[in-house]
Each structure stands twice: as C-alpha cells, then as structure tokens.
Amino acid sequence: MSDTLKELVELLNVFAMLSLMAVGGGTAVLPEMEHEAVAVHHWVTSTQFASIYSLGQLAPGPNMSMVGIIGYHAAGAAGFFLVLFAFYFPACMLTYVVSHIWDSYRDNPWRDAVQRGLAPITIGLMLAGVYAVGKTASFNLDRPLWFNGVTLGFGLAIVLLLFWKRINPAILILACGAIGWFVLR
C-alpha cells in the first residue's frame, strides 16, 4: 500500500471513530483528536493544531469543519475531503436512522437517563479540550514568560467579556489576532 493511501485509511478510521463518539457535540472529541493528530499520527504539530482549531472558529457554520485542514496536512486535497466526510457522515447517518424510530421511544424514561448521565462526561471532555488546546496556545513553556502572560490574558479577558456581555466571539478572536500581530513576536 502506498504511503498516501495508508494515511488516508488512518484518517478515515480516526475521524469516523471521533464522529461516533462526539457525545454532546463536536467539542467533546477535541482532546482525543488532538492526541491522535499530534502525538499518535504526527499529522500536525501541537501549535499547528491550536492554530487550525482557532481558524475553525473564524469560519461560519459548524465549528468543527477545520478538521479538513488536518486532513490536508496529512494527505493533501484528498485528505481534506476525506476527513470532512469521515467526521460528518457517520454521525449524520446515525441521526438519520435513529430519529426515524425515535418517536416510538420518546416516552422511554431511559432517554432522559442517557441525556443526564452523559452531561457531566461531556463537560469533562470539553474541559479536556480546553486543556488540549490551551497547553500550547495559552501556556507554553517554550515561550517567554511575558508571552504566556499575554496569551493567558487574552483567554481570561474573553471569558470575562463573554460572561459580561453578548458579543460575537468571532469579533473577539479577530481582535486578539490583530493585537497579537503587534505584540506576540
């Protein structure tokens, strides 16, 4: 098997699995995705992963389409589209099939149990996602202390701003990019 083909099969495996394990939304698989893409398969570096994730927050639509860029790094244009397919199709297909038979189960008390049971696990996964991206993007020992001060400051400022007021997060991200252009070098 050629190297590219092998890479494509790996991409398909990893992202289809992630698709079906995204309990409570795409963000839940962020830590596992980071681990697979950086440490296990070396498709991207951890800095690249953090940048790619944040680029995804600048585009409209579902905020996980940036997975395609990881596929591009691993296997070019074919990787880009394959990863998008692998990440979206299995979960959509599952939803299509299950929503078909859902009405007959909607009064089943177990549905509520699943939803409430998974909620704290989803939160734990999201927290792990913050850590997975933050360990390079916010606090990174390869960088000088002042640099980490600025990046941590950006993060904290955004948390506070968003709790204080409803601002479009894309604007805040762009603003931090603009400040970063001048400050973070």
């Binding site: 962020l30 953090a50 927050q57 991206v133 990046t151 955004i158 931090c176 990019g177």
Partner: peptide, 25 residues
Amino acid sequence: DVAAALAGVAAAAVGLLLQVTLKIG
C-alpha cells in the same frame, strides 16, 4: 507576522472554549 497573529487567535479561541464549557457546565 502571521505566526504572531495566529498566536493571538489561538489564545482567544481557548478563552472562547473555556467560556462555553463554564456556561454549559
């Protein structure tokens, strides 16, 4: 230049993710 801007963007995205996590949590 771009790396500097991206560092700012990524730091901001972490804040956004943390805020969503805290809000949902």
